[in-house]
Nucleic acid binder design. Structure first.
Lengths: 349, 349
DNA sequence: TGCATTTATGTAACCGGTTACACCAAAATT
DNA sequence: AATTTTGGTGTAACCGGTTACATAAATGCA
């Protein structure tokens, strides 16, 4: 592997001049510049980014720490991040911390010295532990972490509002007895969605005490919930699943049992995965723009990298209702909300 | 940001000793080691991976260069790569070259000095240009690039065999007049699939001259092809789309037109995207394990990194037929094939 | 007790770049 | 013609670690 010293020697100049010539500094004679670039081309010289970033104190890379790499969710997120990062000339260093808090800490450690900023989607963690494992002085943005619990810029989906809006839409459409198929108990999104459902039912659902079925975000869990409803002959007129995959499982069982959707029972999901448009009937759901969330997070990080010490901003992305064939209500659109929050130290001092 | 010199000073030892103590070398007194680790903890010292990899000549990272970041395909691929890489203690440096050959070259340049190996999924490129832009001495594995055209280990899906097998299965199931909805002309996978279809038809399809409809891998293209068939009242008893999305578009139009699937017309796709199981009827398709391809590529790279100069190996992953409701034939399973190829220089010398 | 061997620690070079500063020749100013 | 300014190039320090080698202290053995 050829180094800049090889190029310098071959061109008959010092390494300093070679470096200047290759980096387009102006105070280099045209003749010398040509000699250097020619030598570099002839030797197939490729600069060593690692060494460069050591002196420059910039790596042109940003670290992305994710809980796992499954499914559409991750793919969309990275695409959104990349769309912004690529334009700004940054590479992405990806790390999968496999769901554990300790894994997060070690993933973050491994990033130090090779990235200029960090995008972290933390697992269910103690905010204090998370704060402690963040390298001081490294710009960071959290993705989908409850804002307020820690003084770091963040972006998140407003799961609560989305679930609330869907529940309200179902009620407005004439449904009275709505059951919720919930997600894993230890999942933040699932809990927020459940909370939105419960609050809406409590405030607008009349005296009916809402039924909550356990689930784990899998298709099979949705199917199981539907079977439970059918076997128990429970009177419900709507099933609101905490995510689309469960709604899909649900739908398959209902069809098999000959229960009409949406006339007998309405069904709704959450996420708007690509599959949602293609079920029969097409699934009504809450549309979540994951790619937008990634892009927003990266933009926030860029602002930090370029601007400097702005107050910690927290974006809450509003999801939109996407009403299709499994319910009988019209499409309702919601708008995005941005919350600016002052840094904690400002409040303290 | 604290450096190892800060730690050394604080512990009252030289940087060399600090380094040794932190890296678990044995020739360090227990007392000194404790002093050093305590100082490191107190100062919240995190080693600078960039600096370390400069001396160690190892970065514990591997670069992944992809043509784009869209959809399920990419997500599965990265997941497969990560499953192997993570276990071996490697991080992933991701780069999106946005489809262009020049983008590929610059993405590869940016990787030099920060990764120990490269996984590249090249766009439609001149093999010579690609070979020229690869850094010499950096272990590399190509993903989904025609083996043989360049002397570098590679893994790829056997699109030709998959398309051939599906065509043969359709013929064996009694279909005679099979039309193929092809993918983009400038896409390697699409061309191979078309070739497999044409060869199978030529050899086993009798005197019927196969119909080839243009497409571009989108759902709309599949729908358009189906409309063309219906409008032209063309006599076909099977539609084999070059990918699942087109088959899905096709299916929707056929259902709307009241044409029975599979009795009147059989439909088949390629890829086995998650959606395929959920169409009605469920889509028969060619199952491609993208994650396996990623894992295989990473394994090949690991072998190069650890083993050293083995002959360039080329894996051709065999897809499997996944027969569901849109055809009337039973499931047929195929097995994986591995082709070992000696290095070119060995043949030359 | 004296000498050889082992072991813990320090010194300094190095990885591959960038850049502050020194230097010298050529050009501009007086 | 002497002096200052300008600008291209080289020298060497530096980024933050690791490690070969030197050295001093501790141990083993005669």
């Amino acid at each position: 592997m050829t180094t800049i010293r090889d190029v310098a020697r071959s061109a008959g100049v010092s390494v300093a001049t070679a470096s200047r010539a290759l980096n387009g500094h102006l105070n280099v004679t045209d003749g010398v510049r040509k000699r250097v670039t020619d030598a570099a081309a002839a030797l197939n010289y490729i600069p060593h980014s690692g060494a460069r970033s050591l002196t420059r104190q910039r790596s042109e890379a940003i670290g992305v720490v994710l809980p796992d790499l499954f499914g559409e969710y991750f793919s969309e997120l990275v695409r959104g991040i990349d769309s912004v990062a690529h334009q700004a000339g940054f590479q992405l260093l990806l790390s999968n911390m496999h769901g554990s808090a300790q894994g997060t800490a070690s993933a973050i450690r491994a990033m130090r010295g090779r990235v200029d900023g960090l995008l972290i989607m933390p697992p269910e963690t103690d905010p204090a532990y998370l704060a402690a494992s963040l390298p001081p002085g490294l710009p960071t943005v959290l993705i989908n972490y409850p804002s307020g619990s820690i003084d770091i810029p963040s972006v998140a989906i407003d799961n609560y509002s989305g679930a609330r809006a869907m529940t309200e839409a179902l009620l407005a459409g004439g449904c009275k007895r709505i059951a919720h198929i919930s997600g894993p108990r230890d999942n933040r999104d699932a809990r927020e969605r459940l909370r939105g459902f419960v609050d809406a039912m409590r405030e607008l659902g009349g005296e009916y005490s809402p039924l909550i079925l356990p689930g784990d975000f899998t298709e099979e869990a949705g199917a199981e919930a539907a079977r439970l409803i059918i076997a128990g002959n429970v009177a419900v007129d709507a099933l609101f699943a905490a995510n689309d995959m469960m709604a899909v499982g649900c739908l398959a069982v209902l069809r098999e049992a000959g229960i009409d959707v949406p006339d007998k029972v309405a069904v709704a999901g959450f996420d708007d995965i690509p599959l949602a448009r293609h079920t029969y009937p097409a699934l009504s759901t809450v549309e979540v723009h994951i790619a937008d969330m990634g892009a927003a997070a990266m933009s926030l990080l860029l602002a930090q990298l370029q601007g400097g010490g702005e107050p910690a901003e927290n974006h809450l992305l509003q999801p939109a209702l996407m009403m299709r064939g499994t319910t009988t209500i019209r499409h309702i659109k919601m708008r995005r909300k941005t919350v600016k929050k002052h840094r904690l130290e400002r409040e303290i001092t």
